[in-house]
C-alpha cells in the first residue's frame, strides 16, 4: 500500500513555476529520499503533500486519500524553516505541540521523558528553548516530529547542526521507526546519508521529477563503463583502456566500448599482475546527482 501518491502536481506563484510536473509514490515502511538542488521544488512539493499549499494541478493522496484534519495527527513534519517557541521551557513546549497532535500531556509524558534521555536533553528540559544550542534545538525538533508516534514522518534536512554522534543517533532512530512500520520521507542534500538510509529516492530539478526509483536500480542505471583496479606495483599498459585516473586509492579505468571488464581482468592475470582489488566502478549518488542535474 502506498502511504503517499503524488501524480503530476504543479504549483506556481505569480510568474514563477515552482513545481511543473512531479509524480512519485512512497511505500509504507520505507525511507524515501526527496533530493534536488536548491530551488528545485522539494519544499513546495512537501507543502502540497501536507495541504499547506493547494496544487494548481495534479492529485495528492496521503494515507489513503486527500489530506484532511484527521490525518494531521498521523503525520509528523519537521519543516525546513523549523522552529519552536523560543520563550517556553523545552519540555512544556514539546508537550504543548504534542497536545496539538491529539496527545494529552499525561499520555505522552513517559515517552517524552524517554526521548529526552535518549537525546541527552533531560538535563535541559526546564531551560527555555532559546537557551539551547542549535544542535540541541535540532534534536528537540526531531523529538517533536516523532513524539506522537506518527505513521508518516516528513523531515527536511534532519542532520543539520548535528555532530557525528548525534547524526548516528538520529539515523538509528530513523531505522528503528522504519522497522516499526513508520514511513519516512526525508529531504536532504547529504547524499552519503541518503545512500546509507534511503530505500528509494526521487530527484527533482527545475520543478520536474528527473530520477526516481530504488537506489540499487538507479546505481545500475548509471553504471559507467569502467573498473576500479588496485595492484601491487604499477599497472602495465592495458588494451581497451581509454582513460586511467586515481580514485580512492585505486585506479579507475574507463574502458573502450568494445572492451569488457573480463577482458581487462584476463589481461592483468596474463601479465602476472598481483591484483589486490578489482571491481566494477559504481557511481556515487553525488556523481549521479551532478550528472543528472548537469544534463537537465
Amino acid at each position: 500500500m502506498h502511504t503517499v501518491q503524488i501524480a503530476h502536481v504543479a504549483k506556481s506563484f505569480g510568474s514563477t513555476q515552482a513545481v511543473v510536473d512531479v509524480s512519485f509514490d512512497v511505500e509504507r515502511g520505507e525511507i524515501f529520499g526527496l533530493l534536488g538542488p536548491n530551488g528545485a521544488g522539494k519544499t513546495t512539493t512537501i507543502r502540497m503533500m501536507l495541504d499547506i499549499f493547494k496544487p494548481d494541478g495534479g492529485t495528492v493522496s496521503i494515507l489513503g486519500g486527500p489530506m484532511d484534519e484527521g490525518k494531521k495527527d498521523r503525520i509528523g513534519y519537521m519543516p525546513e524553516e523549523r522552529g519552536l517557541y523560543q520563550d517556553l521551557p523545552l519540555e512544556r513546549c514539546l508537550l504543548y505541540l504534542a497536545s496539538l497532535k491529539g496527545q494529552p500531556p499525561a499520555a505522552v509524558q513517559e515517552r517524552l521523558t524517554g526521548y529526552l534521555e535518549r537525546f541527552d536533553l533531560a538535563a535541559h528540559k526546564d531551560k527555555k528553548v532559546k537557551e539551547l544550542s542549535k544542535g540541541m534545538q535540532q534534536k528537540a525538533q526531531i523529538i517533536n516530529t516523532i513524539l506522537h508516534q506518527p505513521e508518516l514522518v516528513i523531515i527536511d534536512e534532519p542532520f543539520t547542526a548535528l555532530d557525528p554522534i548525534n547524526t548516528q543517533l538520529v539515523k538509528d532512530v530513523m531505522r528503528e521507526l522504519r522497522a516499526q512500520g513508520t514511513t519516512i520521507l526525508m529531504s536532504t542534500h547529504q547524499m552519503h546519508q541518503v545512500e546509507e538510509l534511503c530505500d528509494r529516492i526521487l530527484l527533482i530539478d527545475d520543478g520536474y521529477d528527473v530520477l526516481y526509483g530504488s537506489l540499487d536500480e538507479i546505481r545500475r542505471r548509471y553504471l559507467g563503463h569502467a573498473v576500479l583496479v588496485s595492484a601491487v606495483g604499477d599497472l602495465p599498459s592495458l588494451a581497451g583502456v581509454i582513460e586511467s585516473v586515481p580514485h580512492n586509492g585505486a585506479l579507475k579505468l574507463t574502458l573502450a566500448d568494445e572492451t569488457g571488464p573480463q577482458d581487462i581482468l584476463s589481461d592483468l592475470v596474463a601479465q602476472g599482475v598481483i591484483v589486490e582489488r578489482f571491481e566494477i566502478a559504481v557511481p556515487t549518488l553525488d556523481e549521479i546527482f551532478i550528472r543528472v542535474v548537469a544534463d537537465q
Partner: peptide, 17 residues
Amino acid sequence: VEEKENRTIEVLVTSVS
C-alpha cells in the same frame, strides 16, 4: 506574528486547522 517569526507556523498548520 510570533509563530511567523519563530517558524512554528508550518508545524502548527500541519497539526490544527
